[in-house]
């Protein structure tokens, strides 16, 4: 076991904060020291007067400025929504394994709701490497679509923007028309489970970024453990350390 020497505990100044849709906020912050990350990795932000840090996928990293997309859900994210430019936050990162991509493969990226964050970052990185990709996303309604991001295709459940229906209704036809070699996705559990099933039906490899309540966020507490199927046996894996990105066909979906 090699201990990573890279600094993981950071202080950062908020450089930008905005409400980018009816339900989502986008926050940018700049750590004092050099920060490196891969799409799919996450940061764990300290919320004062809360026992647990809050984990968020990294949505962008440019000029040492980290972007995070979040939904105001409870008192932790309420604190974050109240941050102002110039405020200092304390965060851990970059944590987890992240997506591995091959620029020579055609990548279909799928995001649902706030889950668009890591696949949006992945798209930027694949593009930098000159790889072929397509990002399709789904939201309940157009009011939820973040104004700061652009996508190749949008579906809304109520049809108020883009295609009408769940993004899941369009995965199969995207596979047929775009012919991807690999699918990367992030979103609610049921969405990722269904995408994995569709990918398996078409014999396409799929990778999913999972979400789970975390305590330590570094693999110690075993609080965010899921089950994987590996070589015919069931094994435990922590979402924070072994994930959050897993091969879809290895996850024991429940």
């Amino acid at each position: 076991m090699v201990v990573p020497k890279q600094k993981k505990l950071h202080k950062a100044k908020i450089t930008e904060i905005s409400q980018v849709s009816k339900t989502l906020y986008y926050i940018k912050f700049k750590p004092e020291s050099l920060f490196e990350s891969k799409p799919g990795q996450f940061v764990s932000i300290l919320c004062p007067n809360h026992t647990l840090r809050r984990p968020f996928s990294i949505a962008s990293l440019e000029n040492n400025e980290i972007g995070v997309l979040f939904k105001k859900k409870g008192s932790g994210t309420e604190y974050m929504a109240g941050l102002k430019i110039g405020d200092t936050i304390d965060f851990l990162g970059a944590l987890g394994n992240g997506f591995k991509f091959d620029k020579d493969k055609k990548s279909l990226l799928i995001g649902a709701g706030v889950g668009v964050a890591p696949v949006y970052y992945l798209k930027k990185e694949i593009e930098k490497a000159g790889g072929d990709n397509r990002l399709i996303v789904g939201f309940m309604t157009k009011d939820e679509v973040p104004s700061c991001m652009s996508f190749d295709e949008i579906a809304t459940n109520d049809g108020s923007l883009g295609l009408k229906g769940s993004i899941l209704d369009y995965v199969e036809q995207e596979i047929i028309s775009y012919k991807p070699d690999v699918i990367y996705s992030c979103g609610p559990h049921i969405v990722l489970k269904t995408i994995t099933e569709i990918a398996q039906r078409h014999s396409i490899s799929s990778f999913v970024a999972l979400e789970k309540v975390m305590a330590c966020s570094i693999g110690v507490c075993r609080g965010c453990v899921i089950k994987l199927k590996k070589n015919g046996t069931t094994v435990n894996a922590s979402v924070c350390q072994d994930g959050p990105v897993f091969r879809g066909d290895e996850v024991l979906w429940q």
């Binding site: 026992t51 647990l52 309540v213 075993r222 609080g223 453990v225």
Partner: peptide, 23 residues
């Protein structure tokens, strides 16, 4: 030990509850 199957942690007022099950 594989530990417990169900949701293992949650935050509470001033603390947290864990049910790891000695994994």
């Amino acid at each position: 030990r594989p530990g417990n199957d169900w949701q293992r942690i949650c935050e509470t007022y001033g603390g947290m509850i864990n049910s790891i099950g000695l994994e």
